[in-house]
Design a protein around this nucleic acid. Structure first.
Lengths: 258, 258
DNA sequence: GAACAAGGTTCCGGGAACTGGAACTGAATG
DNA sequence: CATTCAGTTCCAGTTCCCGGAACCTTGTTC
């Protein structure tokens, strides 16, 4: 209805459904009259939110969004501190590390750093994944209370890969475990061949929680090494927790079973 | 004036002037009445373009922009192909590589990949730099005609570091050289301690030009190795040029001296 | 090459939503 | 408790946005 909401709808749609779009396509997808779609897209292009492919006359995401978007998280002290800590861990271990945040039933990568090992795992900032099928997601979900989790998974989504939890009960079981031990791992749950270990920390001032993770080739990292990586994360998280006034992740469960 | 232009102004301002902003600050910076600024910021936050720091009540860039922005360049065949070629070059040489595009008198990094060498040079996608003081920028400028270049540098900007060109004449001299040899290098011109070599390619279908680069610690890469890296880039660019119908960079100068 | 289809733009009257001055809330400060 | 500063709300005036219809332009079909 408002000019802004139309523009944002276009961006959201464009973010999900491929990199390009034409007027008719957008009009159909968003239920707008063609004339409106045409005007909105043109206005967005004029302002730099979109660009127009000179050859195909279709619209794509504009450079402005790239420039502005990368500032996401900048200036949040916890993010900066966690990022620095993870840079050090990648240097020491050679494994990929990163930071994710929870968004509904998804996790979004906020910062990431490729490892130096041969088999590289890359999930660039902005990547969205299933919270129930990632170690980072379950660490963050574990900080919500059980009612909230149940509400978010009212209809349980299809598992991305066979190893992912297939029901709310299965998910809650894993979440109870996260609350007990303070960290989580995942193996081939959302990406084939990829394993990860994670912990969560929050800034008590803002109540915003982050998950820190190691990601690696599931085949090349054995149980022992995963434990060691998890220990490194817990150590880093503990240091951040005292600095930012967080309760340690292991005791953060506020649910009925916490 | 339009709702969109206000929102975009806010994003642009926020992209340059730090990660956070308050209502009054934005109102002053953009010359808006406080009431308008308040409403615009709130609307943007409601739509997800901005977020509000719960503790300080100030506004920051929203996650939506991170998610959408990273799709910039996706779907452009030349970008994808160049990115793949550079991934291979980083694998072979261990040096950081990336892709930049020209925007006015600036270059913006579109894709980048850290090297595996000890001293890492990182310029994440979205980074903006001075075109006249980077090898990528001069490669791209060299493809414009002289009048266009002169127009863009009507007032010549201050050099970021002493080694950068200090006048239009000095810049044109380097640009003529780029046109002659087909590649360019820079050393400590825009970032202390950093050197780079670059070439440019364009998609004849869309007329969009990219610069491909190697970036490295200026101290640790000698003249000989730079030549070798430049040769790798020229080779990769040549392959892309035939695929995308570009005229070879060395002959691309269309100016009076081209 | 006439007719048609598909993607996109322009036009324009009606009305929703944006604007901005002024008044108001609520902290923080001295 | 007066004062200042940041931010929000209110409301009348009006801008600019919406959307149906007509109109281009390009490519396709028979």
């Amino acid at each position: 209805m408002s000019a802004l909401s139309n523009a944002v709808s276009v961006l959201r749609w464009l973010g999900r459904n491929g990199p390009e779009a034409g007027v008719t396509q957008v009009a159909a997808a968003l239920g707008l009259p063609k004339s409106t779609a045409s005007r909105v897209l043109k206005d967005m292009a004029v302002h730099g939110l979109l660009e127009r492919d000179p050859a195909t006359a279709r619209y794509r995401v504009g450079m402005l969004l790239l420039e502005v978007g990368r500032h996401y998280g900048a200036g949040q002290p916890l993010v900066e501190a966690a990022d620095a800590a993870l840079a050090e861990l990648t240097r020491r271990t050679g494994h990929a590390t990163g930071i994710s945040v929870l968004d509904g039933i998804n996790v979004v990568v906020l910062r990431s750093r490729a490892g130096t090992r041969p088999l590289r795992v890359v999930t660039p900032p902005g990547n969205r994944g299933p919270a129930w099928a990632t170690s980072t997601g379950r660490c963050l979900l574990a900080r919500l209370d059980d009612g909230e989790i149940a509400a978010r998974f009212r209809v349980f989504p299809r598992p991305p890969l066979p190893a992912a939890p297939r029901s709310l009960a299965a998910l809650m079981e894993r979440i109870r475990q996260v609350r007990a031990v303070g960290w989580e791992e995942a193996e081939e749950e959302s990406m084939p061949g990829v394993g990860a270990v994670s912990v969560a920390v929050a800034d008590s001032r803002t109540d915003e929680a982050l998950a820190l993770y190691f990601a690696f080739s599931a085949l090349h990292v054995d149980k022992r090494e995963r434990r060691a990586l998890a220990a490194l994360l817990r150590e880093a998280a503990a240091r951040l927790a005292v600095r930012f006034g967080d309760v340690p992740a292991a005791f953060a469960g506020r649910g009925a079973y916490g």
